[in-house]
Design a binder for these strands. Structure first.
Lengths: 241, 241
DNA sequence: TCAAAAGTGTTCCGAATACACCCATGC
DNA sequence: GCATGGGTGTATTCGGAACACTTTTGA
């Protein structure tokens, strides 16, 4: 097969037009943390194809819109939240992934604090729900694929970057943090060792505030020191585990 | 701004057509290792726009072609090589990245053994060359961006996965391997410790063969045991450093 | 006083680091 | 012999794993 010049088609608009036939969308794997479980936000489709099926939230990219902007719009329009952690992880572009035409989709994953989230009614979603990532219904299109890859990405990045903090309320106890990591990674940590390690990084600020109304010794609350993290990162520090 | 239903436009082909206006391309950051340096393969553009500028190798994705397939085709058509290591790393889609229209590009990076590589004449490339990643000429389009991100990706993945082996000839000495890692990461390793660590992983097979015609004690040659690596990986082993 | 979780300290082990040193070859 | 890189051994340090123990609250 002969290669087509990637970038010079001015002189041959016909060929160019032939190649300008792709649809582009973004799909977001939105993670939340509830009842000790990592969950993902799904929407129920209200139209064909895949009517009644559950799907990731996503939309076609507008012609005058950057990718990230588009993903951000999708998230905001459905959750009402702005400034959400969001990162591109993979692009899916097999020919047959969309029944209507050639649509390539860019996958983003994002992390939201469940308490901040209040779903917004939308023309394109019948309903939404949070689903445990191990108890998924069948998903529309190739969204199973996308979701699987998104979960893999989360698992990898969570040990290398303090993304875990995005899922908790701003004030949290060390055991809550530990439980979050355990939920994502699927294995247990030793409590004393986890504490030591995480505190040794000096990224957490102990607050005066304590838990209340718990039938056991109340735990100290901490918050994440983002500014300090940014500073350390510049000096070559890498968060790990 | 109102969200458009991502996936159901059957009933509204006009709107759908409006959104099916994207061009899609792949660009490959091809790494090679020569004279102790990590280099990247560039082509000199022979047409406008950016005529005379250097660029990454890439092409528009054909309508009936998967993404990976497309990247593979680009590589093979230019290098004659098949079965090259190749991995998607990021998708670039700002509106203005291509002067002719809205073209989104998917970035792949790949690793080739320089000795195997023999450039193939092509209609779309005037000439090609290997360039040290720290002495780059100005690049066409947003290829500087893409390249920077590709180098970052290589640096990250090289410590976590034995990608380094793809760049060396099949038989190599431990110091060659060490030098490769040093070139990629930009810092030195302690020789005894590097040896111990890499040998302890049990991924290298010592060969009977030795270096010859060197004016010092000849080093033993090793080869990478891919089968063993795949096996260990299944048992949860992670290559590191 | 008891359950339940918060929180601390200590020991042990293995891996990473830092070196010092010897070996084989070409010239 | 000597320069050059190949290759080995060891002492030390540091961080992680394991685990025992004390503390504080509500009921």
């Amino acid at each position: 097969m002969e290669a087509i010049d990637t970038y010079n088609l001015t002189k041959n608009q016909d060929i160019f037009r032939e190649y300008l036939q792709f649809g582009l969308s973004v799909d977001c794997v939105v993670f939340g943390y509830q009842q000790g479980q990592i969950k993902v936000l799904l929407v129920e489709r209200d139209m064909e194809p895949f009517k009644g099926n559950w799907a990731l939230i996503g939309d076609l990219v507008h012609p005058k819109e950057d990718l990230r902007e588009s993903a951000s719009r999708v998230l905001t329009s459905l959750t009402g939240l702005t400034n959400i952690f969001m990162e591109q992880f993979h692009t899916f572009g097999t020919q047959d992934r969309h029944p209507i035409g050639r649509v390539v989709t860019v996958g983003y994953y994002s992390l939201v604090r469940s308490k901040d989230y209040h779903p917004i009614a939308s023309s394109w979603a019948k309903s939404t729900k949070w689903v445990n990532i191990h108890e998924l219904p069948e998903l529309a299109f190739d969204h199973d694929n996308i979701l699987t890859k998104g979960v893999e990405t989360l698992k990898k990045s969570v040990r290398r970057r303090p993304v875990g903090f995005e899922l908790l309320p701003t004030k949290f106890t060390l055991l809550e943090l530990q439980a979050l990591y355990e939920a994502i990674l699927g294995y247990k940590f030793d409590k004393p060792n986890f504490r030591k390690k995480i505190l040794a990084m000096d990224l957490l600020v102990p607050l005066e505030e304590m838990q209340s109304n718990v039938s056991h010794r109340p735990a100290r609350l901490y918050k994440f020191d983002l500014a300090r993290y940014e500073g350390l990162k510049k000096q070559g520090f890498v968060f790990e585990l």
